[in-house]
Computed example of a mutant assay.
Amino acid sequence: MNRAESRLIHQAASLLLCYPGEDWRQRLDLVRAALEPVHGGPAGRLRTFCADAAVLTPIAAGAEYVSTFDRSRRRTLHMTYYADGDTRRRGQSLVDIKALYRAHGWQPDLRELPDYLPVMLEFAARVPGAGSRLLRDHRPGLDLLLAGLASHRSRYAAVVEAVVLTLPRPTPADRRAAGELAALGPPRESVGRLPASAVPKGTR
């Protein structure tokens, strides 16, 4: 897959992983139209999702989104949570990601934390070099998210799988890290916890 196609997949996945609003069906139509010239596995996964999700009203789509991502710490879209949990270390990870965005002249939506996967994907679409490296750095978390969605039998697994397919094959270190996260879950800390606003819903 070339860089232009990867950018398109990342932007499309970003749109699909944001909370569904009143524009839900228009968003699906936009993604389908943008993917028309693109072939291959990742685009096919996104087309499958769009076809499956088109039957949902915005209200039903919103309810499914909340039940999928906001009620399990193994299905959160806040990527630093997989490696850092709600420890003090996560605060520094968020600062580092925000600094990366700033270094490339990009200011994301301040209503979301910088590790929110749709935000990271939009950055990867805008700044493919640094953005793809950021996604690769969070490969173990992406693998755990995908496994959680597949276990939940969520249609959103197709979207995350499309993202994963744009990345290089996992290294042995990636596999070990994902295995440890799957076995132990994100780390916890009894003192110096992050403020509640920095902890993903469903993890408190």
Rank of each mutant, 00 (worst) to 15 (best):
P168S: 00
S154H: 02
Y82H: 09
G185K: 00
A83W: 04
P168Q: 06
L146C: 12
S151W: 14
V191Y: 08
R27M: 04
L181I: 08
R75S: 06
R3N: 09
Q26E: 15
E161Q: 11
G141H: 00
V127C: 03
A124V: 01
T80S: 14
L134W: 09
S6F: 05
A183W: 05
T57L: 00
H10M: 11
L117N: 02
G185M: 00
V55T: 14
Q92N: 01
D174F: 15
G141K: 06
R74Y: 09
H78N: 05
V95S: 01
D109E: 12
R176D: 12
G21Y: 00
L117W: 00
L134D: 02
M79I: 00
F69A: 03
P42I: 01
A182V: 01
S6I: 13
L165M: 07
D86Q: 03
G44E: 04
L145P: 09
M79C: 12
L77C: 04
A178F: 04
G129Y: 04
R45F: 07
V66G: 11
A99S: 14
M1L: 11
E36S: 14
F69D: 05
A158I: 04
K201C: 10
R27P: 02
S197A: 13
T57H: 00
A196T: 05
L100T: 08
L135M: 11
G202F: 08
Y81F: 13
M120H: 08
L145T: 08
Y19D: 01
A196C: 07
R169D: 14
Y65W: 11
R169F: 15
G105V: 06
L28Q: 02
T48Y: 06
I97L: 13
R102K: 12
R75V: 03
V163A: 10
C50M: 02
